[in-house]
Design a protein around this nucleic acid. Structure first.
Lengths: 347, 347
DNA sequence: ATTAGCACTCTGATCGGGTGAGTGCTAAAA
DNA sequence: TTTTAGCACTCACCCGATCAGAGTGCTAAT
């Protein structure tokens, strides 16, 4: 059977209505609320066809229809047209991202929170370090003997510090020397390519301080591995509470499972595509986390200098306003790319 | 009316039973389950007295009784005896705190998580910086002109960094000089006492670089104020999901409000006593956050060198196992004090 | 091909009786 | 005087019956 123009219109109307009401929608409702130009009986026949084709389904005999995953998929791919954001909203978002840009983490957290307020859905930002590049490293004295502070500066503006064991006492002057040596060599390394060449070269220069150096190199190495390891990806949620308001989660078990997953951040990371360029809409069971079977996830990566460095996503029930969410995700990802790039170290 | 031994026994039994079952407890249940040596009729009379005295109440006529806040208060103050923790649990806790001690924040987060698993309640750690003392400060070059990295080391071992605007370009050598000057002066300042004297002195030494210095001083000042400001207190939750399992929260509105408060961390900070020495049990409306009217909060501060630097607490429904919770809070606060002190800078 | 009409289905809300745990009171027993 | 047995009474909760409303599928007329 072909899906003709009238069927498309009816499917569109069903989804539109179901998104708004969360109630199964019947033929009479459609003929009343939407100007389809045919009677409810005709709509009934068409709906029967649409059901047979798998685009909609009936929770039980004699109830209205709800869209199936296939129906949503068709809607997203062919029917909806993402509306442009209102200028006010757009400004708000860009302002939010830009204003906190000196504390990148804050910017992410605030953006997630803002978007979830605007959409009444849950939003997620993942910041991955995989592609960020080390720009500078400093070794500084710490007040415990045998330990020093290692501070790293990355090309996306991030600054991080950690305390590392080096097993012996070193004077501030020596640390300064070490810092200089490392920075001379560091140039532009990303987690993947530092390991051998550079480290060995540094090692040779300070062969006389062998044990110290091997400690340091180990630390740097470990830092790099940590950066590479997706476990250090940071996850920021906004509006997790909004899920409670969704009628499909009026159920304690579901809420508990859902919040359980929110706490286990790595599961979220697994769901967000990180290298896929462009926008991805995952509907219902298209994502593989059991708890999210009733949810859809709309994501896009943001990039620095063309390389994806994280992703932004909106999570909601399968019955969500895809148009608006898609528009929002696109806009946020682009804004993040633009603003973070403008802040990042010039190549 | 006096509360005699038998009444105490009955009150104790009521609370004991209610804590376990979450159901109003009746006279017959008591006479069956507890060896009180009197008939249910007698217990009924005593319960009637206890109600009149305000220690228990009846949700509705012809239901069993539940403890009132006054009842819990009496129980906590006079009836219960906090059991010692099992050795295994104690070891587990100390190990958890000690193992992550190089990343203090991680230690807090893990401890909160562990305790909530052990108690099936929610736990909170607040780390406040109010009393920590600045040990060292470093100014380091950043890759954006007009900005530098400021790194601070505190006596509790914390290391923090931030990027600050200084409005002009400064060479690494100059930054080194500034670092030296500041560190000479810093000695041991806590957020409260740095402000005037020290800063002005530094200022005089570098009067020729006036604008730069004023920027720097502003930044340091701001940092100190931020530290003083309770907004930067960090809050770590563990087991917030446990609240969902409590029968008193089988209600969507309550759950939503509760999680709303968990997200607004400053409200929690307001509830936790920060200077009170020793252990505090707040029952029901004794805390002033509306959402927590059905909750009790048991807290203690932990200290470094005798000064409170944060607090640990367990949050649960008023109907919670006070004995175990109190034992737990005491033990955790003491362990935190001990282990963090042992790590902190020697005075 | 479309529509009006109708019988039928299913959900969800409402109502009323029955059950069981619990109480307060009274009068008898200790 | 205190304790206990006995009894009438209260309420929350469960269960089944009933009813209205929304929706469907089918048939016959347009």
């Amino acid at each position: 059977m072909e899906i003709d123009e009238r069927k498309r219109k009816i499917l569109w109307a069903i989804i539109q209505d179901y998104i708004a009401s969360a109630e199964p929608v019947g033929s009479r409702t459609l003929s009343r609320k939407y100007d389809l130009g045919v009677s409810s009986a005709t709509i009934r026949n068409e709906m029967s066809d649409l059901e047979e084709m798998g685009y909609i389904e009936q929770p039980h005999t004699s109830s209205g229809r709800i869209p199936s995953e296939l129906g949503y998929r068709y809607y997203v791919d062919y029917l909806m047209e993402p509306p442009a954001l209102e200028q006010g909203e757009a400004d708000l978002i860009q302002h939010e991202i830009a204003s906190k840009i000196d504390e990148v983490d804050d910017a992410f957290a605030h953006t997630a929170s803002l978007i979830s307020r605007l959409t009444k859905l849950t939003s997620v930002v993942i910041s991955q370090n995989r592609h960020s590049v080390l720009k500078m490293i400093h070794f500084l004295p710490y007040h415990k003997p045998g330990q020093i502070i290692m501070l790293t500066v990355w090309d996306d503006g991030k600054v991080e510090n950690s305390v590392v064991d080096i097993g012996e006492e070193v004077s501030p002057q020596e640390l300064q020397t070490l810092t200089n040596i490392f920075n001379d060599k560091v140039g532009s390394v990303s987690p993947g390519n530092l390991k051998d060449a550079v480290l060995r070269e540094v090692h040779n220069e300070l062969i006389q301080k062998k044990s110290l150096m091997s400690h340091l190199i180990q630390s740097v190495n470990k830092l790099m591995e940590d950066q590479e390891d997706e476990a250090v990806n940071k996850v920021f949620f906004g509006g997790t509470l909004n899920m409670i308001n969704q009628p499909e989660f009026k159920n304690f078990e579901k809420i508990k499972d859902l919040f359980g997953v929110f706490e286990e951040r790595h599961k979220i990371i697994g769901l967000m595509p990180r290298n896929y360029e462009g926008l991805l809409v995952q509907i219902g069971s298209e994502n593989h986390e059991e708890v999210f079977q009733d949810c859809s996830l709309i994501t896009a990566t943001y990039k620095i200098n063309g390389l994806p460095v994280g992703s932004f996503g909106i999570l909601g029930p399968t019955r969500m306003d895809y148009g608006r969410a898609v528009a929002m995700v696109k806009f946020v990802a682009d804004s993040l790319s633009f603003i973070i790039s403008s802040k990042s170290y010039d190549p």
